[in-house]
Design a protein around this nucleic acid. Sequence first.
DNA 1: GTTAGGG
DNA 2: CCCTAAC
Length: 689
Amino acid sequence: MVSSSLDYLVQLIIGVKRLHYGFNGYQVPPIPRATRSARRRGIIRRKTDGDGTCPFDLLATVAGKLLGEQGAIVKNEKVKEDEDRSLKEKIDTEGCYERGFIISELVSQAPVVNRSLSELPHVQNDTISGPASVTMSSDCSEKFPFAKQFVNGESSEEHGNFSSKMEREAASGCGVFSSCTLDTENDKQIKMELSNNAKVSTNKGSEFPDVLDKKPSTLVTSNESVKLSLSTDPAPCRPLQVIRNDVKLANKDDDENSGCTQPSTPNKASGSAPRVRDRPIKKLLASKYWEENLKSDDEGHANSCGKTMHVYHNRNIGCKHQRSQRDFPFKKRKLFKCGSFSNSDGEMSTDGGNSSSPTNDLHGNSSGSSKASSGGCAAPGTSVFNVGRASFRPDDSRVKFRIKSFRVPELFVEIPENATIGSLKRAVMEAVTAILGGGIRIGVVFQGKKVRDDNKTLLQTGISHDYKLDALGFSLEPNPIQAPQPLGPDCRSCVLPYDTPRPLTRCPSPATVVHTGIQQGRSDDHTGTNLNNFLESDHDSTPSSHYTALEKISANSRALVPVTTVNAEALSVVPLRKTKRSESTQRRIRRPFSVAEVEALVQAVEKLGTGRWRDVKLRAFDNAKHRTYVDLKDKWKTLVHTARISPQQRRGEPVPQELLDRVLTAHAYWSQQQAKQQMKQPSETYLLL
DNA sequence: GTTAGGG
DNA sequence: CCCTAAC
């Protein structure tokens, strides 16, 4: 197939024959629909999409790392093999056992590995481990070995070395908070622990084993549904718990924990409803359930509340969950456009999923609560940054600090007992990515007050080089617009029913695709120079390809994929975002047509004419799964427009004038043909009548 | 499922 | 690219 495609490509590029319009070989295009012009145009739907801005682009940092260049896979440390074996076979669901999840780094060939930190807003060096922890590495060249081993669940010596290395590096540098820019050395590590609240921490020298031992996640059953709470705290069974305060929450957890019963919340999804056996995997993301939510909304309006941020002076005082301390290297990007999601449907509200707006900052004392919470960590839904004191020179006007950890909202996963480990991993991955990719933004809390003015300088805010570290904090907040939401009832059923594969593209699920590794040999070349780009684009890194890949996986739940085979790039483009519009699919990413594609399109249209887009698609883009005939039609439309405007007005990758000329020529020709047909059509119609 | 157009 | 009327 490839060869044939290539042959065709060669034909396209090399042996392109100029068509002579008027040649009788042309096919007569279909007669245009006469009624089209008269058709009623419906009310223009106003897109509710709104872009949120993340001051520090943490989302990109984390999610990008999680799902980006390296790719990630959820691994259950305790159950490495037989991924597809039923959970029941592997896990005793009768009690709470220690188990963890590792989002381990995948070996990647991604070309981006060599990017410098400045180029990548992502966290560099992410090595992570332990249960419910995330390990990622951006500096693949060096960390790969380590990551690889880790993936295999081996605590190798390299780890120790690595830790040492990290220590050194961490010591040498720390996050620099300057001019609203967070920057750190490349060699920093971010650690994410899906603990109580799925904590993400950046530490150096984390101890994997430690993490494993101290933070057992729990797995309980309910009507044959296995509810897995990625929690290290003993309160795993409180998926959609209302959060009040970190400290209180911690205490409360213990009380409510007993029995591992589900919390009764207004959130239907939270699960007060009886679980149906064999129901597809359900996962709930309890990220922002605050009291307010509890009271109100069934309507699903966004809750406004900020996440607490905790500042730690001393790494040792940190949350008990905190395992290691690594600098959290991330750089602020200008603005982070968190995708847009309509936040309106009541669907989400049904689940109690509501986005929290930063306006409501529940806690004023970040430092106080932070320490208090150290015993139990933040309450579910609370995102916390633990800021560690970083060394700095008094004469340095730079503000330096180290974020030791932050948490992401609690994850709740419900999965049938007979689900496979593989599906469990996917579910967890999905949950994680939904949160991380769903629209987290960073809030800045200083001296107990939320700093909302992004334009303020640090100095103006009072954050100087000698500021009290306790006073500075960050919060992970669900994006008001696109905050990750618990899956709605409808969504739940859409969550990767592995047993019954279905096109994910139609699944309004959180757009979080669990990548378990797919053999994808090619990286997409968006420059358009890669001819294979569109000839084999079904292998490229696009959401569609992900879906496709996932479908394949779904179809074969037994597929055991080596983590090392995953095409890291395949994960890079997925905008894992959980939308409010749980019913609508996510907008596809923009994929500019390459010149080669344009060439193919032009040739096809020259041959087939306009109005036969399906044929055009089959003829020239049959292998480009991501190009629908509608896309081709649209492209042609824009091509015609482009060809008509002055070159100065054109944007994007320049299309050779020669091609544009052909576009105009072909368009003119086929338009004429259409006109002719229209002339004849009426009479024929009448004749028929 | 396609096509055509407006958004 | 999305959405959707009209086929």
